[in-house]
Simulated scan of single mutants.
Amino acid sequence: MRSLILASLMGATALPVLAQEVNVYSHRQPELLQPLIDAFTAETGIKVNVAFVDKGMVERLKAEGDRSPADLVMTVDVARLGEVKDAGVTQAVTDEALTVVPEGLRDADNQWFGLTTRARIVYASKERVADGEVTTYEDLADPKWKGRICTRPFTHDYNVALTAAFLKHHGAEETKAWLEGVKANLAKKPEGGDRDQVKSIWAGECDISLGNTYYMGAMLKDDEQKQWAESVRIVFPTFAEGGTHVNVSGVAMTSSAPNKEAAQKLMDFLVSDEAQKIYAETNNEFPVSDHVERSELVASWGDFTADATPLSEISALRPEALKLIEEVNFDG
């Protein structure tokens, strides 16, 4: 059985290890990365091979061990970045170019680095929710929202990270009470993804939902989903004594990294102004670099102040946050 598992992990999408190439295991669909890869290869001549690893990335890297062909891991959400670090399958990278990433958006031990940010916001019905009616994350537990909130499962990484941030601000007792309050306000059982919640608002099943900002851009490009997007507006709630919760897509170098020098060049490129502009225009995300402007569409959503809590501290609290979510049986 163990041999079969290893064969499954290492077989179908194994990547070649060749000079002047970089091998990437990615949670993101390769087509989202292709414009960046094309620009990097055109500039450096270094080929980039991307294997889409939707599930079991940590297990795969641990099974491959020192024989892993992967140089870099690219993933979304601080929880997943923390997971690969905690598994011991990454290494620290110290490089001047990477200091463009703000301290709060990179690992304190330089094991992972944010490449883009997205805010965890509220999508609010234009028809049924007044301007200023939603102001804070704490407010979502107010009984005035009873039967009016939709959300994807809270055990999903995006909501675990939000809960971990709430935990950092308020402690376990208040966080559990908040989770119970939000659950009591749900219009229906948590299910689906962030875009499904916007569809539910459009259909009149609820009035507000939690979601990531970039989904608005994705919906506006889809003929069917555009009407969902146009039925809501983006609201940037804050913590009562903080800012708006943000998360990242990020990169980490694997502990095995057979093409370390070329991989380092790709990491440096991904935080360059050129790459950050590509991210901003194609993926509807916020650049981590202060040197790069948001795209016109993203800028149209409005300004906000990001919460100052370092994401490495939020990542460390995710096991406790998940435990609280399960204690209140939020998704049940």
Rank of each mutant, 00 (worst) to 15 (best):
M1H: 13
M1Q: 11
S3I: 13
S3L: 12
L9E: 08
P16Q: 05
A19P: 15
Q20G: 06
V22A: 11
V24H: 07
S26G: 06
R28M: 15
Q29S: 13
P30K: 04
Q34N: 12
D38Y: 04
D38W: 02
A39Q: 07
T41S: 11
E43N: 10
G45Q: 03
V50R: 02
E59C: 02
K62I: 14
A63P: 03
P69A: 11
A70V: 13
D71M: 03
D71Y: 10
R80C: 07
A87G: 08
A87K: 03
G88L: 10
T90F: 06
A92N: 07
V93N: 03
T94F: 08
E96I: 04
L98H: 07
V101P: 04
P102Y: 14
E103A: 15
D109I: 02
N110T: 07
Q111E: 10
Q111N: 15
W112Y: 14
G114F: 13
T116L: 08
V122F: 03
K126I: 08
A130T: 08
Y137M: 13
E138P: 03
K144A: 00
G147F: 00
T151E: 01
P153K: 02
T155P: 01
D157A: 14
Y158Q: 10
Y158H: 12
N159Q: 15
N159D: 12
V160S: 03
V160M: 03
F166H: 11
H170M: 04
G171N: 05
E173A: 15
E174R: 14
E174S: 08
E174G: 01
L179G: 01
L179E: 00
E180Y: 00
L186G: 01
A187L: 01
Q197L: 05
K199N: 12
S200T: 05
I201Y: 10
G204R: 09
G204Q: 11
E205P: 01
C206G: 01
I208C: 02
I208K: 00
N212M: 04
Y215C: 11
G217T: 12
G217W: 12
A218V: 15
A218N: 12
M219Q: 13
L220H: 13
K221S: 13
D222P: 12
E224K: 13
E230I: 13
R233K: 15
I234L: 11
F236M: 05
G243Q: 12
N247C: 06
T254L: 07
T254N: 08
N259C: 08
A262I: 04
Q264K: 14
M267C: 09
L270N: 07
Y279L: 12
Y279K: 05
N284C: 09
E285M: 15
F286P: 01
P287R: 11
S289N: 09
R294W: 09
R294Y: 08
S295A: 14
V298Y: 10
S300K: 05
G302Y: 06
F304Q: 09
A306G: 13
P310W: 10
L311Q: 07
S312K: 13
L317T: 02
L322P: 04
K323P: 01
N329L: 09
D331I: 06
